[in-house]
């Protein structure tokens, strides 16, 4: 038997190591946030939010079209992905106890782990090639495919939380099953589903890989669904690997804008969730 002192020592050491793990995890986060904020703030200007990119080697210009592009592509992704994802989720909760439901649930789980670059390849082959053009639509389709599985699974959970009695009351009043799902069950779970949508949107807005060969990029404003469109993430990538100091500064600033966008969405989702469960 080891001495009590030794055992206490080991206990203390392991506790210290675990606390150290916390520190190790927080250091990169702190470094990353600090740099994005400090270097990002330094490059922010009015122009940054209102202009399109300047030609190579010229300073000035901004990423206004990329900010709009990200919102636009994500908007298209929502139009496609939200009805699909939420619909599939409601199906799983309401009627998903059979083998088909099991298969869908399992597929959704597995799909949520598929690397996003793979979705990019598929969207290129299915949307870009037949349309003969890189487009916001292709980017939106790729992001929508990424949103569907997560949305489906979280919607299912939320819908399952809706009390059975509510559903039965509606059915007893003679409302059809389909309308019950839509107007009673979905409405009750709406707050939670909105939270899930916001989180899915936040994730989609931060994606780069599936946009590389779908939405491509554009140095002009574009809000036409069938044309190439700029996005913040692709712009950050292009600027980061470039040799120009001015572009590096812009990459940091664009990263700050992206983080603020993603952060606001996640925070909104959290607040929404908190208010609901209080």
């Amino acid at each position: 038997m080891k001495s009590l002192g030794l055992r206490r020592g080991v206990n203390w050491a392991m506790t210290a190591l675990c606390a150290l793990a916390l520190l190790v995890a927080l250091v990169p986060l702190a470094s990353l946030l600090w740099l994005v904020i400090s270097r990002g703030l330094a490059g922010l200007s009015w122009d940054f939010f209102t202009s399109t990119p300047a030609p190579v080697g010229e300073s000035g210009g901004g990423v206004a079209n990329a900010i709009a592009g990200t919102l636009y592509i994500v908007g298209i992704a929502c139009l496609i992905g939200v009805p699909l994802g939420v619909g599939a989720g409601v199906y799983l909760a309401e009627r998903g106890d059979g083998p088909l439901g099991g298969a869908i649930r399992f597929t959704a789980e597995v799909l949520s782990g598929v690397p996003s670059i793979i979705i990019g390849i598929v969207a290129y082959a299915l949307v870009v090639l037949p349309m003969r053009r890189f487009s916001a639509l292709a980017g939106g389709v790729a992001l929508a495919v990424l949103m569907v599985p997560t949305l489906a699974r979280s919607t299912e959970e939320l819908v399952r939380l809706v009390p059975r009695s509510l559903r039965e009351a509606s059915l007893a009043l003679g409302v059809s099953e389909w309308r019950t799902s839509l107007s009673v069950v979905l409405r009750t779970a709406l707050g939670g589903i909105l939270t899930a949508i916001l989180l899915a949107v936040a994730r989609a807005a931060g994606e780069t890989a599936p946009l590389l060969f779908t939405a491509l990029n554009n140095q002009y404003w574009n809000l036409r669904a069938d044309q190439p469109t700029a996005s913040l993430t692709v712009q950050i990538y292009n600027y980061a690997v470039s040799p120009y100091q001015d572009w590096h500064d812009k990459a940091w600033s664009a990263a700050l804008v992206l983080l603020l966008l993603v952060g606001t969405l996640s925070l909104a989702a959290r607040l929404l969730a908190r208010n609901r469960f209080r």
């Binding site: 908007g75 139009l79 404003w221 574009n222 809000l223 036409r224």
Partner: peptide, 10 residues
């Protein structure tokens, strides 16, 4: 919104 904005850029 999508339809309108498309028209504005057309």
């Amino acid at each position: 919104t999508l339809a309108l904005s498309s028209a504005a850029f057309a």
